[in-house]
């Protein structure tokens, strides 16, 4: 069994259509740890010691957030600045996160076609995520293919919220129960609810 830690960050929680439902579903999953970062640190006073302890107690660190300006909401960045200390997460003696996994669960407003060299976002999704990918690498963690919902603003009308949330739950449960095939997807792709590499049995 893998110990899963979900960090959820959404400053506009109450206006959310997808992330809020995802968060509620994730919170209800048994035997995983769920942290609503903005509820935990409404005044950005992140407690470094507590967060590092939490990281040490888990194997898979999931960040769930909506894409803001091709990056994370600002509290996640603050969290990185404070928690991923030299000597803890990287650098000399910084091996405490070695062997753990990082997984991103992202919603993006643009459609998947936009995230191509010809699309209006001009770069593939994975290009925008390279800072996080490299952060994981520097911390000797492996970076899994992100679980992405494109076109999130249209998702409620398109009936995509329910399958995406359902997929998210299956994904988290599969990781917890060691049924998730982290190696199945490539290094340059993202996965959606219809392409989850979940094994049937352990």
């Amino acid at each position: 069994m893998a110990r899963v830690l979900v960090y959820y960050a959404h400053p506009g929680h109450k206006h959310s259509h997808v992330n809020r439902v995802m968060a509620r579903a994730a919170r209800a999953i048994k035997r995983i740890t769920f942290v609503d970062l903005y509820a935990e640190y409404p005044r950005f006073g992140i407690d470094c010691d507590r967060e590092q302890l939490l990281l040490l107690e888990h194997d898979v660190i999931v960040f769930q957030f909506p894409m803001f300006w091709y990056s994370t909401p600002s509290l996640i960045k603050e969290w990185e600045d404070i928690v991923l200390e030299h000597g803890f997460a990287y650098g000399a003696g910084g091996d405490k996160l070695e062997g753990k996994r990082m997984l991103l669960a992202i919603t993006a407003a643009g459609p998947s076609e936009a995230y191509t060299t010809d699309g209006y976002q001009h770069f593939p999704m994975r290009t925008f995520l390279t800072p996080l990918e490299q952060t994981a690498r520097l911390c000797r963690m492996s970076f899994a293919s992100p679980y992405v919902l494109y076109g999130s603003l249209q998702a409620p009308d398109a009936g995509l919220v329910e399958p995406h949330v359902e997929g998210y739950v299956q994904l988290l449960e599969a990781i917890r129960d060691d049924r998730y095939d982290f190696e199945a997807s490539g290094t340059d792709v993202t996965v959606g609810f219809d392409s989850l590499p979940i094994r049937e049995e352990v």
Partner: peptide
Amino acid sequence: RAWQPPTLAVPESPSPRCSAT
């Protein structure tokens, strides 16, 4: 702590100031 440049941190051993470690 968070804003000390890495070179100032004590090398070779876990950070002495981090109780978590």
